[in-house]
Design a protein around this nucleic acid. Sequence first.
DNA 1: TCCAATGGTAC
RNA 2: GUUGUACCAUUGGA
Length: 435
Amino acid sequence: MNVKQMTNTMLKQKAESFGQMLYHCAKAQPKRKFHALYDKIYRPDILKTAWLKVKANKGSAGVDRLTFDYIQDEIGENNFLNSLYLKLKNQTYQPQPVKRVWIPKGNSKDMRPLGIPTIEDRVVQQATKMVIEPIFETMFKDSSYGFRPNRNAHQAMKAIRKASQKSYWVVDIDIKGYFDNIHHDKLMKLVKQRVSDRRVLKLIRQWLKVGVLDEKELKPSFLGSPQGGVISPLLANIYLNYLDTIWEKRYASLGTLVRYADDMVILCHTKKDAIQSIQILKAVFQKLELEMNLDKSRLVNIWDDKGGFDFLGFHNRKFPKRKKNGQVMYFLEHIPKKGAMKKMRQTFKDYISPRSKLVCNTMDLIDGINRKVVGMRNYYRISPIATRWLNRIDWYILELLTLHYNKRRNNKNKRSNLSIVREMTKYRLKKLSVV
DNA sequence: TCCAATGGTAC
RNA sequence: GUUGUACCAUUGGA
């Protein structure tokens, strides 16, 4: 380990322990508003750690066209950070507009608008996040699982499983364009619950208001937080924490709320509770000026294996299970949802089918597939039942490989699926359905 | 135990 | 052309 790595590690630890200190302070004093946070943002340890974190993502440049390579080779990492340090200290830092990029959404033809801040802005946002996130973490509720440290989708699934044991009705709610419809003033009001430092509040307000540069035209932003902004996920959680708080305090008896960013379900015992839950949600959304996506929101009966609902990439449905005494019980199981199955198939098709792969080494090809297999298996292999569905993907991969082989060697003897199976075990092709 | 790079998922 | 947060996993390094 060299000196540079060591100092970076020490800075990281220092920044980390600062965050923990803030967390404990905020937890011990739940009503406290923090007024001296701005100066922490440009602390050398925080700023440098923020830079390293942003750099690790290897993202592209913002509107100023400054890339990581340019900053490191032409400007110099230290010069860049020093000038940013001075700008923050003298309060002359000004965020620049975000760059508009459209990317395809999931599997449909819809496009999703990204707002890419400049690298400099991303660093300052990261530093700010490191300072304010610990404070808000103390307020966030158990029902919230998305974008939060030490929490993941599998924990949300576990919560659903647990709640499903005494639930028969599930309300599945989707919010229309959540990030893009966050109300600035209402969000700032929620931030002010714990942060009273005006300079920090000003920074956040500026990031919300900078505007979007779309094809050389600057459009102001009155609504929403840029998808691509480093603190946007945190702000999104602060905004919907309003819902979590109200639910926990007043409506927890109606059902169990499980939220992952803007995707949420409520598991209720009776249909009456479920319907009432929808009414409550509607009222809360109205206060937050958010709109329910009626096409994607549903009320589902999960009393047996007939009804199910999609959540976090899984289709959730009760499956029958025969107990020792012959009695049949129903348990909630998670299987990859239709869209997820399609996406997995597409991923392997895109990887194996291109003509460029026809000349590539078999070991490398299999190695590339294996990496993807391990990653996917790792998310979707959640239960024995889920493996039945993953098995289909394994066969699809073999099908693609058979096609690939028969195309590659333009010889007469076309190979069968089974001979490929034998060959692939030789190359240690991994399977989604087997550990 | 910790670090970095790279693969996957959710949103 | 692809941003962001979080998590998980694998490999490698001490």
